[in-house]
């Protein structure tokens, strides 16, 4: 009888322990994660008014940096910020109105074409959409 009780106790105990080992991941999974949403193909890069004319902002686009430019004329343009030479991150140079790579002075125009320096290829351009106050950037499909 003692043995039987022991087995029952052991059975119930190990069952509960296993259940707990399974419920723990489930509960953690259901709790909201730190970053609330998945990064999408279309990214909210900035809000209207974030960018003064002739300034730019680097943002994360999927797993690569991208750059949103508000030109002197107030036109919104977006590019991949990865230089086609040695994958450095490019910046917007307000004085010349061009994209400029600090590593080897590569320069791109606002159509993404190489103006000067070592970059072999134009930089990728993205589509900019304004929805209400949000500026969305997406890849050209």
């Amino acid at each position: 009888m003692e043995r039987r009780r022991f087995i029952n106790f052991f059975f119930g105990g190990s069952f509960l322990a296993t259940l707990a080992a399974f419920l723990y991941p489930v509960i953690r999974y259901v709790l909201p994660p730190k970053q609330a949403e998945a990064v999408q193909k279309k990214v909210a890069a900035a809000k209207m008014g974030d960018l003064a004319p002739n300034t730019a902002k680097i943002f994360k686009f999927g797993s690569v940096p991208a750059i949103l430019v508000n030109t002197q004329e107030g036109q919104l343009l977006a590019f991949s910020a990865v230089c086609t030479h040695l994958t450095c991150t490019v910046n917007y140079e307000a004085a010349t109105g061009t994209l400029f790579c600090p590593c080897h002075n590569g320069r791109f125009d606002m159509a993404g074409n190489v103006i000067s320096g070592p970059p072999p290829r134009p930089i990728e351009t993205y589509i900019v959409e304004v929805v209400g106050e949000d500026i969305f950037v997406s890849k050209k499909a």
Partner: peptide, 23 residues
């Protein structure tokens, strides 16, 4: 580590089942 713990519990449960079946 989590796998080891979960597997350990599972093994215990398996053992308990085995004892149950025998008894």
């Amino acid at each position: 580590k989590g796998l080891i713990i979960a597997t350990f519990f599972l093994a215990l449960f398996g053992l308990a089942l085995f004892l149950k079946i025998r008894s």
